[in-house]
Write a protein that binds this DNA or RNA. Structure first.
Length: 171
DNA sequence: CGCCAGATTGACT
DNA sequence: GTCAATCTGGCGG
């Protein structure tokens, strides 16, 4: 996936990531899964994201587009793709995937990282190495809604998912 | 340094 | 429905 794809507004990238394929490379194996649910996160003006306010995560979000950001919360790792130009703290959270060539362990942002073997080890790494994103199904219907789990959301819906997909964590 | 909260999940009452 | 597990940064003593 070209870095220019991620070098845009998080909302646009979040929508266009739906239906595409995330590839996790471990040794000689490749775990492939379709992205079915995402959320867009912005800069320090985003009340939902504590991550935007602290040092390491914030600076990671400000890095150039195409970086992988791993956020640890409670007992889970959540994956984000850094978006937009360098200096702009923006990212897209992957919330749910549809496993293609392996057995998933259920839906949800904390479970998909376990299924793909993603943890702090890939934090800050670039897309194209251990984790790759490829073109996928673009004949999908996108539904938007408010984000899940956040105490203070923005006024605009910033969660997007594929209509009718059974792997979406919540309709 | 100790305590708290947060983009969560799963086990137990 | 309730609560603990576990990681990171902010805040108070």
């Amino acid at each position: 996936m070209d870095n220019e794809f991620f070098n845009r507004n998080a909302e646009i990238v979040a929508k266009e990531l739906l239906g595409r394929i995330i590839v996790r490379k471990i040794d000689d194996k490749e775990l492939r899964a379709k992205i079915v649910e995402t959320e867009a996160y912005f800069d320090e003006k985003d009340p939902a994201s504590r991550a935007c306010q602290n040092g390491d995560l914030r600076s990671t979000m400000m890095m150039e587009a195409g970086r992988i950001l791993v956020y640890g919360v409670h007992n889970n790792w959540l994956v984000n793709f850094v978006t937009d130009k360098e200096g702009k703290a923006s990212a897209v959270l992957i919330r749910a995937i549809e496993p293609l060539n392996f057995e998933g362990r259920g839906n949800g942002p904390g479970l998909l990282t376990k299924s793909l073997g993603i943890d702090k080890g890939v934090h800050k790494s670039k897309i194209g190495g251990e984790v790759e994103v490829e073109d996928g199904d673009n004949k999908i219907e996108i539904v938007s809604s408010f984000r899940i789990g956040v105490s203070k959301d923005l006024e605009k819906p910033m969660r997007f998912y594929i209509k009718g997909n059974k792997f979406v964590s919540r309709i």
